[in-house]
Design a binder for these strands. Structure first.
Length: 578
RNA sequence: GGCCCGUUCGUCUAGGGGUUAGGACGCCAGAUUUUCAUUCUGGUAGCACGGGUUCGAAUCCCGUACGGGCUACCA
């Protein structure tokens, strides 16, 4: 069994692509097959330097590295389509000679004009003879055009009145009427093949047995089947499995009182940038209108439907909002909604083209894998947490769902939390240490392990260790105002100063000893836990959230604790105006 | 518009003729923890609609609605 993941190096690898790669990998591993990476770079205008390296690094980070591919090797290379140009030429020639393909000389302008005249224009059997190609033109003229170097493309000649049946592992049998199919371009003017030709030739030559790809390819699969037939490879045609798409999160999940106005403003701004005329026609009302639509939760869907009475501007805004709120998860969504949609961060040519990745956001690769595996597939039982080995053992094509699934960042967070919770401290240390170092801190191993031990069950993302536990390395940035106001009694300043002194004099600064000393102090002065512990916590951490206060103090150390407390009590007094 | 695919709690999903329609995330409440989190217990909430077929339909069939994909010399 040989499976390939065939991304186009046009930028960062989308999370949907990652899932496709994962499913290919899982099946290959389960069946003892080979997982191949092929770079589909036939569109030179869309080529983005660095994208291929990004893809490889992402797969490696996720633990689904290919067995064959560019930079890896294998017996079926080269694995970049741009390096296989001549191979495709040969098969295009074969198709031409067998009458399954023909030369077409129509210019881009001519095609555009045809589409303009008739919105439903299709380059098919009906239109073919009205266009300029080797079927409609006399042989001598074709010869002349070819001779004098007139640019041409090679088109596939679709036969009429045929039903093409596709056996899809996910969807079952899907039928297409060949009369609905257009004569797809096989070879472009620049001599490069299109995806359609290249993927068939490569899959055949690389002896691919199973094609697992996104649903967006289902429609063109009929063309692909025909191509296998024309090339005489139908007997060894791979098995197809078309994956459901990953969709944007449900609007209800991210539209709330505080985020809706922000989103409305952001989307209106984007709308104005993309459709300045429509936005102008709405004048200053665009944002208000957008907000209105977004706030009408119950009728969000129908609120987005364009009505006859809507003027052009409003209709355009609605259409824009709809595309921003529904449909396939896109790279923009990460920015709009504040979560990653790429495995790794991507540095584009501009701020707007740069995106933060799951890795940099603080996700563990195991969590991303687990989350993605279950988005569109499940083993049929109630297990949620899977190691890669378990996924490999449980995975199967028939259990892939047919319908698209919405991305949920909450669920992703939960998975990550689970993995942080059960990760060994030493392992987490390896992940967290670099994050601390980036903040200028390089704690010793004992301190680091203890810190992670205290924060582990309070972290959802790796970045939480620093975000929520920075005060283990630096003095608190401030003190929770409300809590100080509520709980700090300036008249107890001197009492607390005495507590600091006694803590300072402790021969053993362990959590247990601190606890005992504190209890003695409370007893001596008739104070309750609630009157003392919050003050200790606030003084040392600045926040009411965090690990057990005595353990926290032990790790901070005697001197640091004394300093922090003295400074804090002074600050508290100021805050309450004493 | 045309073609293709889909539709079970807000979300991810199990269930494929007889089920109190199960689980997970989220949310809510309670217990534990004098913080937060973890953990535990409970709750909330669903078969898009209309017709058939059948003794019986979430499940099979047809239609409608809705959603999605494709409709490029992009992949």
């Amino acid at each position: 069994m040989r499976l390939r993941f065939a991304p186009s190096p046009t930028g960062a690898l989308h999370i949907g692509g990652v899932r496709t790669a994962l499913y290919n990998y899982l099946l290959a591993r389960k069946e003892g097959g080979t997982f191949i990476l092929r770079i589909e770079d036939t569109d030179q205008s869309r080529y983005v330097p660095g994208a291929e390296a990004y893809i490889l690094e992402a797969l490696q980070w996720l633990g689904i590295s290919p067995d064959e591919g560019p930079g890896i090797g294998g017996d079926y290379g080269p694995y970049r389509q741009s390096e296989r140009k001549n191979t495709y030429q040969q098969y295009a020639q074969q198709l031409l000679e067998a009458g399954h393909a023909y030369y077409a000389f129509d210019t881009a302008e001519e095609l555009e004009a045809a589409r303009e005249k008739d919105a439903t224009f299709k380059y098919d059997a009906g239109a073919r003879m009205r266009m300029r190609n080797s079927l409609s033109l006399p042989g001598s003229e074709v010869e002349a055009l070819l001779q004098n170097g007139t640019p041409y493309v090679v088109r596939m000649k679709i036969p009429q009145h045929e039903t093409i049946l596709i056996q899809d592992e996910v969807r079952g049998e899907v039928a297409f009427d060949s009369n609905e199919l257009d004569d797809k371009v096989l070879v472009k003017t620049d001599g490069m093949p299109t995806y359609h030709l290249a993927n068939i030739v490569d899959d055949h030559l690389m002896e691919i047995t199973h094609v697992i790809r996104g649903e967006e390819w289902l429609s063109s699969t009929a063309h692909h089947v025909l191509l296998y037939r024309f090339l005489g490879w139908e007997d060894s045609m791979p098995t197809f499995a078309h994956l459901p798409l990953i969709l944007k999160p449900a609007p209800e999940s991210f539209l709330d009182k505080s985020s809706t106005p922000v989103l409305a403003a952001r989307l209106t701004e984007e709308f104005a940038r993309k459709m300045p005329e429509a936005a102008d026609s709405l004048g200053g009302k665009a944002e208000q209108l957008a907000l209105q639509i977004l706030q009408d939760k119950k009728n969000l869907a129908s609120g987005l439907k364009v009505k006859d009475k809507d003027d052009e501007g409003k209709a355009a805004l609605k259409a824009f909002l709809k595309s921003a709120l529904y449909g396939k998860l896109s790279k923009r969504d990460g920015d709009r909604l504040g979560f990653p949609v790429f495995p790794l961060s991507w540095k584009g040519s501009s701020e707007a083209e740069s995106f933060i990745g799951f890795r940099e956001y603080g996700f563990l690769p195991e969590a991303v894998i687990n989350f993605l595996a279950l988005l569109g597939w499940n083993p049929g039982d109630e297990q949620e947490l899977f190691s890669m080995e378990q996924l490999i053992a449980a995975f199967s094509l028939p259990r892939i769902n047919k319908s698209g699934s919405r991305f949920s960042i909450d669920k992703a967070h939960w998975f990550n939390q689970q993995y942080i919770l059960k990760a060994p401290i030493e392992e987490l240390a390896g992940q967290v240490a670099p994050l601390l170092k980036a903040q200028g801190h390089e704690p010793g191993q004992n301190f680091l392990y203890a810190f992670i031990g205290l924060m582990q069950e309070r972290a959802t993302l790796l970045t939480d260790f620093w975000e929520n536990g920075y005060y283990f390395f630096e003095p608190p940035r401030g003190y929770e105002e409300k809590m100080v106001q509520k709980r700090w009694d300036p008249e107890r300043s001197e009492l607390f100063e005495a507590l600091v002194n006694s803590l300072e004099g402790l021969p053993d600064f362990s959590a247990g000893a601190i606890n005992t000393a504190t209890e003695q102090f409370m007893e001596a002065h008739g104070l309750k836990f609630g009157e003392v512990l919050p003050m200790l916590r606030l003084a040392n951490a600045g926040t009411m959230k965090g690990p057990a206060v005595f353990e926290m103090m032990e790790l901070l150390g005697q001197e640091e604790v004394a300093n922090r407390m003295r400074r804090a009590f002074k600050a508290f007094n100021q805050m309450v105006g004493a």
